[in-house]
Design a protein around this nucleic acid. Structure first.
Ligand SMILES: NC(=O)c1ccc[n+]([C@@H]2O[C@H](COP(=O)([O-])OP(=O)(O)OC[C@H]3O[C@@H](n4cnc5c(N)ncnc54)[C@H](O)[C@@H]3O)[C@@H](O)[C@H]2O)c1
Ligand SMILES: NC(=O)c1ccc[n+]([C@@H]2O[C@H](COP(=O)([O-])OP(=O)(O)OC[C@H]3O[C@@H](n4cnc5c(N)ncnc54)[C@H](O)[C@@H]3O)[C@@H](O)[C@H]2O)c1
Lengths: 211, 211
DNA sequence: TAACATTTGTTATAAAAATAACAATAATTT
DNA sequence: AAATTATTGTTATTTTTATAACAAATGTTA
């Protein structure tokens, strides 16, 4: 299967979550425009994304929700779960750990790391915190490929380098510095301040234009 | 000034933060390719964004960092600070509050809201938590225009509706449901699970392609 | 059963974003 | 002082993403 557009991958993740909610509500089939409404996008967008993954409904009946979830999972999940580690077990690292557990079956949070002796050895929701000195060893032995980076801003760049050297393939960066990584490492910047400043800008500028 | 592209606004926020770091390190001027390297993007991208905001350096000398920060701030900040509220004062809401205070001078976090009587009246970093029943009153009286939404997923959509009815103009949505809002409300979905699933997908698919 | 309506799947078009190309300018070297 | 180099600012091009248009399928109504 050809590689999918980034934006489509994003939406597929959201479709799936939304579809699970629909199942919880006893729904079995869904039209493109219904799904679109739930995601605040257009029906064409939905159909185009579904075209990308090569799913077909029986025309005019909408999509079978379970089938569609299955197909999306086939595309965006890996066969074997991927192993994930949290780097920096502070406020945010712990909050994420609590939130994360059990949320995604194909993503296993397996370890946390910190530099602070007081944190090393501690556990949150069964996820143990190891010394950052053992990073490489544990990453390699447990086949960890994804890192959630929640260290303080000033050590983020250094840590990113070490992570990549240790064999990490993808980083979700919660710190508020942009990182430099080789192009074969997938990096997702997840920056709250930027998002908030963006909201502020468009709050100020958008209303004049539309409607 | 014409409205800027979304991606440019995002990057401007990041340029500014990065430039502040440069000042801390005693740097006074910076070349487009230096700034680009720090953000993991291209120099052309940097120059193009700077063109959008109409800033000019003396050619071949790079940009004066202080000047550039000033110009960016003029564009993306408001004259008067905008007032912000946190909706849902749980783990995440409180973590954000701690983190947020003092971080952005033109964004004032002024109140938090919760439905849980145990939380109402509590304070984190001087930010007081009010009953959700007083939402409208407090939003109007304090001219709050931006909401950070950190309530549980199941009440997110209802809360979004109430927020908009109360006069909120922008929402930063941390919950993992997509919201429906009128087109004159600026909504930024800030969804960790989606970001993580995206990382997982491209960890699986990207390396084969590039390099 | 003929006309109409609804919904999908796909191709065509438009809009947004990123990249490339390059002229202009100023500093440096020869 | 001519040639070379480095850097910006801008226009042109390409790529990516979103939207529009519409044919095909299938059900519904007259
Ligand atoms: N808290 C939030 O809501 C929030 C929001 C947005 C962004 N962030 C960003 O997330 C990061 C963490 O924030 P936080 O509030 O959890 O801070 P925190 O201080 O509570 O946690 C940071 C943890 O990292 C550990 N650490 C320091 N250096 C380390 C190293 N080299 N290797 C491993 N661990 C190390 C510290 O011991 C600490 O436990 C910061 O970069 C911050 O900018 C936080
Ligand atoms: N914790 C994380 O790291 C994390 C990460 C990503 C996303 N999220 C999302 O953020 C949201 C909050 O997560 P959390 O971990 O802070 O949960 P939490 O349960 O700790 O906090 C939720 C708070 O909202 C309050 N609340 C409930 N209904 C309300 C209402 N109608 N109005 C106002 N307040 C109300 C609750 O009393 C509670 O204090 C969830 O939607 C979750 O999906 C959390």
């Amino acid at each position: 299967m050809k590689i999918l557009p980034e934006k489509t991958v994003e939406r597929l993740s959201q479709y799936r979550r939304t579809l699970y909610n629909c199942i919880d509500q006893g729904k079995e089939r869904i039209y493109s425009h219904e799904l679109a409404l739930l995601l605040n996008i257009t029906a064409v967008q939905v159909r185009r994304d579904i075209m990308f993954i090569g799913y077909n409904s029986y025309q005019r009946k909408g999509y079978d929700i379970k089938d569609l979830i299955g197909k999306i999972s086939l595309i965006i999940d890996t066969q074997e779960p991927l192993n994930v580690a949290v780097i920096g077990y502070g406020n945010l690292g712990k909050a994420i750990t609590t939130y994360f557990i059990g949320n995604r079956p194909k993503l296993n949070l397996v370890a946390a790391f910190d530099i602070d002796p007081k944190k090393i050895g501690s556990e949150v929701n069964k996820i143990k915190c190891y010394s950052i000195d053992r990073l490489r060893e544990i990453i390699v032995n447990n086949d960890i490929t994804i890192a959630i980076l929640t260290v303080p801003t000033h050590s983020a760049r250094e840590m990113a380098k070490i992570l990549v050297q240790s064999g990490i393939k993808g980083i979700l960066n919660f710190t508020t510095v942009n990182l430099n990584v080789a192009p074969n490492i997938y990096l997702e910047e997840y920056d709250m301040i930027t998002s908030l400043e963006k909201v502020a800008y468009f709050v100020k500028h958008k209303p004049e234009e539309e409607e």
